[in-house]
Nucleic acid binder design. Structure first.
Length: 403
RNA sequence: GUGGCCGUAGCUCAGCCUGGUAGAGCACCUGGUUGUGGUCCAGGAUGUCGCGGGUUCAAGUCCCGUCGGUCACCCCA
């Protein structure tokens, strides 16, 4: 009998999982520096929340949700993204005024898995609610950029666009729609279907996008206030020394975005899925899910893809491996003492030979081996450079001074 | 939903083209050596060759089906 994890889900074990730990620690550090406290929200939400928030025409909602009816007859869905849930939590809290939150955890989309695309994937992100200024956009974009740079995503590129607002976007969408209708025969079937439902996404198509070189551009149709917002965001990024590339084909897959939209792309990633993160402003989302008007901006980063692009592995960190010449019971007691002193120590519980214990110590990458020779005997401290002996209770102070 | 590639020891894989009694490396265990251990030497255990059917005197190897994995399209983090 054997089980495999469900399709598109993975076990992440050491040493790879140690890189995840490091990446998540760095994430917490950056989120704290920018003033984003942790928010914990459910992994399941009402199906309605995503249908109304993310949008009924999106691929995510129409074919990728894990939806089921619970035993009370309610339709619930494993979250396919984070923003809708965080905005719901913000509205439920009743908070007035600017509000920041950082989140991380697993998300679920039913798709055919491939490199960088799993059915259960891990995202970290932030949302900044009840803010309208371009400074908020710039801060959010910068945070993601600093983190991804710090963690070492190679050939990181930030792309940015403006999608307009409820005033200017409908005008543009009409114009784009008639442009696409004229070209309909040249388009793939899936693009043709989108002309009525969501023509913006045709521009994002890999097959058709390049053919539409003379398409109408949102950038040319922005109303005055959207233009000013967009120009200011770009100016602020320049002042922050965050390099960006303007991309008027960038529309993103979720319906709630308005004005600023952006993506972080790892150009060195050889997998086809090279967007390591993305986000934007969503001034209409809170109202779309039945709340008051509360504009906001945020992003999500795919940790699976980040790990794919940085690819380094970190060994399990250990200060010392304890080798016992008198069996595991003694070692357990001695290790406990050292651990309570703050040292990272491991040892063999299975009573294996001293030779096997030494072998394990070296394979675990322990910089120091402590040889336990029995109660009352000093501990033999062995390093690459030499050896020393200390009573057990002085071993931790030896670490503080000698190293 | 569509297509390419791959399923052989705990892990990574060779063997398949040109059918003839299952292999390597790593990992694991024991002994020796080293005598601060990671090196080196000797030995040891392990396989329904994914599953089902067909061809054949004979199938890990050829054919068909099926399941699983993987990569790509589509789309997205």
């Amino acid at each position: 009998m054997s089980f495999q994890p469900p399709k598109g889900t993975d076990d992440v074990l050491a040493p790879e999982s140690e890189s995840w730990r490091a990446a998540l620690r760095q994430w917490e550090s950056w989120a704290e520096r920018y003033g984003y406290p942790l928010v914990l929200i459910p992994v399941i939400e009402s199906t309605d929340l995503f249908e109304r928030g993310v949008g009924n025409t999106t691929e995510v909602v129409t074919k990728q949700m894990y939806t089921f009816t619970d035993q009370g007859g309610r339709s619930v869905t494993l979250r396919p993204e984070g923003t809708a849930g965080v905005v719901r939590a913000f509205l439920n809290s009743g908070h007035q005024g600017p509000w920041k939150a950082a989140y991380s955890g697993p998300f679920f989309r039913y798709e055919r898995p491939q490199a960088g695309r799993r059915r259960q994937f891990f995202q970290v992100g932030v949302e900044y609610m009840d803010v309208e200024s371009p400074e908020a956009d710039a801060e959010v974009i910068e945070l993601g950029f600093r983190y991804l740079t710090d963690i070492g995503v190679p050939e990181l590129e930030l792309t940015i666009n403006s999608l307009g607002d409820s005033e200017c976007r409908p005008v543009f969408v009409d114009e784009l729609r008639s442009y696409l209708r004229a070209k309909e025969s040249e388009l793939t079937d899936s693009s043709a279907e989108l002309i009525d439902k969501n023509p913006l996404r045709v521009l994002d198509s890999k097959a058709d996008g390049p053919k539409l070189v003379d398409h109408p551009r949102m950038i040319d149709h922005l109303c005055d206030s959207c233009t000013e917002h967009h120009e200011t965001v770009k100016r602020l990024l320049a002042e922050l020394e965050v390099p960006y590339v303007e991309d008027d084909g960038l529309v993103r897959g979720l319906d709630y975005y308005t004005r600023t939209a952006f993506e972080y792309v790892g150009r060195a990633l050889d997998a086809a899925q090279n967007a390591v993160g993305g986000g934007g402003r969503y001034d209409g989302l809170a109202e779309a899910i039945g709340g008051r008007r509360a504009p906001g901006v945020g992003f999500a980063l795919g940790v699976d893809r980040i790990m794919l692009s940085v690819g380094q592995e970190i060994d399990t960190p250990l200060d010392a491996y304890l080798v016992s010449e008198t069996g595991p019971a003694d070692a357990l007691i001695a290790a406990s003492s050292l651990r309570r002193d703050g040292l990272r120590v491991d040892f063999d519980t299975e009573g294996r030979s001293v030779k096997a214990q030494f072998r394990t110590a070296s394979r675990a990458g322990a910089p120091v081996v402590l040889v336990w020779r029995g109660d009352g005997q000093p501990v033999d401290i062995q390093t690459r450079d030499g050896r020393a002996e200390r009573p057990l209770e002085e071993v931790s102070s030896w670490f503080r001074t000698a190293r």
